[in-house]
Design a protein around this nucleic acid. Structure first.
Length: 505
RNA sequence: GGCCUCAUCGUCUAAUGGUUAGGACACCAGGUUUUCAUCCUGGCAAUAGGGGUUCGAUUCCCCUUGAGGCUACCA
């Protein structure tokens, strides 16, 4: 059996789109599931849209997302573009002479022809066609040029393009692995430009030539390519090549059901990473947009995805890119994650929030100037991990740990229908109790035990003591429990914050 | 306009001729907890419409409607 090879073939136009990420993921999973190859190819045939640095960026993000490809293009440590695997680097702009050769072959064999029509003529032709409610299509004028006329025009250096000569009769039929049988009448297919006047191929030609030369077995790409697939099949036929299998993927949509676009929100993978989504969570989320495992499982590691993925689970309808569920998935991953890893990811956000700064191997709390280590930050992160949805929230949610003065309304200290006096008294009781406690006993389970005893001894309700204490330590309506916080804060700060609260009342 | 495609809860989706149309997110309620979150329990909520085929249609066929994509010397 033929080796399975898929390719991800983005254009370097700026950033990696989440829709492209999903395409890349499916290509990757399909290849890996079948023990095949996953190739990265850069489709940079449009010089006008090329964005400097986007290839390097693309390679970096793919790498960060864990979608490892074994052939094509990569970047070295200096960001220079290099070959990856045994072949490459696959950049279409560097393969111009290859396309030229194949275009010449097509012309030679009568499957393509020179077209010298000016932009003005084409525009006018299309305008008239639309006025007559016809489909705008090339009228085939240059098909009738004689050999001599062509040579004369070429000699005069007249700008030209090369067009595919599409038969007027018959139809193209193929079986898409997702959409099933697709049949299109040849007469509705335009004589597509396959080589532009600047000598660059268009997508259609470059795509077919490269997929053939790179022995791609399955072309997995977005649904927007479905209508042009017949052109590609015609091209394979003209070359006498066997066409690969095609699998088109339903589109990702804006909330108004139009094709997902930048105008209506974040679409760049980088944006989501910046917002504090984990790569695994993002991958898991886009996996489920258009594919289902036929079971009720929803959380998959990359390895599990590889094991489970198949094209038959891909559905046909487009799906709205709604990040509500991404938040939930991200939370699941955060809770499952190794604390060291999580902390490493959180540190930049703490620095960005101006809570801490890095000093060599240690960190300084900006507010107090205290020096803390990674282990301490880990404890802080552990406090919050249960309620975290995005890493980016961490700065806001642990601010109270790193601030010396808390800013809150004193009414917040009052639990249910307590009086101010009672709250004050209870805080005073806690203060006295903790004052005599050894620093070493400032551990959450011990503190719980001690304060529970205090509650019982004084015949109080737990909330009457715990709530004011928690607010005194955090100044917040919602937060982790007071004992874990007290442990992280340490004796001195705890006492100071209780005192501050008592004075406030 | 032409061509192509699609259509199940608000959202992501399951059910490919027989189910009280299932799950998840979100939302609501209850429980656990000093609070928020987590966790547990429960609730709300869908087959676009009309014709066929069939004993029986979410499922097969046709029409209508709606939505999207393509229609470039962009990919």
């Amino acid at each position: 059996m033929k080796k399975i090879r898929t390719r991800f073939a983005p254009s370097p136009t700026g950033y990696l789109h989440v829709g492209s990420l999903r395409t890349a993921l499916y290509c990757y999973l399909f290849a890996k599931h079948n023990e095949g190859d996953f190739v990265l190819r850069i489709e940079d045939t449009d010089r006008a849209r090329y964005v400097e640095g986007s290839i390097e960026n693309l390679v970096k993000i793919l790498d960060f997302m864990g979608l490892e490809y074994n052939e094509g293009v990569s970047a070295d440590n200096d960001g220079k573009i290099v070959q990856k695997g045994n072949f490459g680097p696959y950049m279409q702009s560097e393969r111009l002479e290859i396309y030229k050769k194949y275009v010449d072959e097509l012309i030679e064999n009568g499957f393509a022809y020179y077209c010298f029509c000016s932009k003005g003529r084409l525009d006018e032709m299309r305008k008239n066609q639309q006025l007559q409610k016809q489909a705008p299509m090339y009228d085939g004028k240059c098909q009738n040029l004689s050999k001599e006329e062509i040579q004369k025009l070429l000699d005069k250096k007249t700008p030209y393009v090369v067009r595919l000569k599409v038969p007027k009769e018959g139809f193209v039929e193929f079986k898409d692995l997702v959409y099933g049988k697709i049949r299109i009448e040849n007469k509705t297919i335009d004589d597509q430009v396959i080589m532009k006047s600047d000598g660059f191929p268009t997508y259609h030609l470059a795509n077919v030539v490269d997929d053939h030369l790179m022995e791609i077995s399955h072309v997995i790409r977005g649904e927007e390519w479905l209508p042009s697939t017949p052109k590609h099949i015609l091209l394979y036929k003209a070359f006498g090549w066997e066409a690969p299998e095609f699998a088109h993927l339903p589109l990702l949509l804006n909330s108004d059901k139009s094709k997902l676009s930048k105008r209506q929100g974040d679409v760049a993978v980088e944006d989501f990473l910046k917002l504090g989504y984990l790569p695994e969570a993002l991958l898991n989320f886009v996996l489920l947009l258009g594919w289902n495992p036929k079971t009720e499982e929803e959380i998959f590691s990359l390895d599990e995805m590889i094991k489970r993925f198949d094209l038959s689970g891909v559905n046909k309808a487009g799906s709205i890119f709604n990040t509500e569920k991404l938040d939930w998935i991200n939370g699941m991953y955060i809770r499952k994650m190794d604390l060291d890893e999580l902390t490493k990811l959180c540190v930049p956000f703490l620095i960005e929030a101006k809570l801490i700064e890095q000093i060599d191997e240690k960190y300084k709390i900006k507010n107090s100037g205290e020096i803390i280590d990674f282990e301490y930050i880990k404890k802080v992160i552990a406090l919050e991990r249960e309620r975290m949805k995005k890493i980016s929230e961490i700065g806001e949610s642990v601010k109270f740990i790193f601030s010396d003065e808390l800013d809150y309304e004193k009414e917040l200290l009052i639990w249910k229908k307590m009086t101010v006096e009672d709250v004050k008294n209870n805080l005073q009781l806690v203060f006295e109790e903790l004052k005599n406690l050894d620093e070493n006993n400032f551990q959450s389970d011990k503190l719980l035990e001690i304060l529970n005893n205090l509650v019982e001894k004084n015949e109080l309700k737990r909330g009457e003591v715990f709530w004011p204490l928690r607010v005194a330590l955090t100044g917040l309506k919602g937060s982790p429990g007071p004992f874990e916080i007290a442990e992280v804060l340490g004796k001195a700060k705890v006492l100071k914050r209780i005192e501050f609260a008592i004075e406030k009342l």
